[in-house]
C-alpha cells in the first residue's frame, strides 16, 4: 500500500498529538512550501532525506510514439530528486536484510 497524505497526517496525529485538522493542514502546507520554492527556482535541500533540484532542458525533436508524427518538445524546466546518502543507506540496509521481500514488493509496485 502506498503512503499518502492521509497516512502522513495520521502519523502527525498519533506521534505528535496534532489534532486531525491541524495535521491535515500541516501536511498540505509542507508540500505546498516545497512546491513554491521549486516554482520560484530554488533548490530544496532536506538533509537526511534528499535534495530537489531543477534542470533546464533544451528543446528537442520528438514524436508521438503511437502515430509516428513528429512534434517538437519545447525547452522546459524539470524537477530532479537526489536521495541523501542516509536514505540510500537505509534502503540498502533493508535490502540486505530482506532482499527477496523487497524485490517482490518493488516489482509489484513498478
Amino acid at each position: 500500500m502506498a503512503l499518502t497524505k492521509a497516512d502522513l497526517a495520521e502519523g502527525l496525529f498519533n506521534e505528535l498529538g496534532l489534532n486531525k485538522r491541524e495535521a491535515k493542514e500541516f501536511v498540505e502546507m509542507f508540500f505546498e512550501n516545497v512546491r513554491t520554492a521549486l516554482a520560484e527556482g530554488q533548490q530544496v535541500k532536506l538533509s537526511g532525506f534528499g535534495n530537489f533540484g531543477l534542470r533546464e532542458k533544451n528543446p528537442r525533436p520528438g514524436r508521438n510514439p503511437k502515430t509516428g508524427e513528429e512534434i517538437p518538445i519545447t525547452a522546459r524546466t524539470v524537477v530532479t530528486f537526489r536521495a541523501s546518502h542516509k536514505l540510500k543507506e537505509r534502503v540498502e540496509e533493508n535490502a540486505r536484510l530482506h532482499a527477496e521481500q523487497l524485490k517482490s514488493k518493488v516489482q509489484a509496485n513498478a
Binding site: 503512503l3 502519523g11 537505509r90
Partner: peptide, 27 residues
Amino acid sequence: ELLEQMSAALAAGDRIEVRGFGSFSLH
C-alpha cells in the same frame, strides 16, 4: 516526523504518492 515516515516507507519498498506533488518509489 514527515521525513521519517517517508524514509521508512521507501526503505520498506512502499511507494509514496502525494497528489499534485509527485510519487517516490524504489527502482
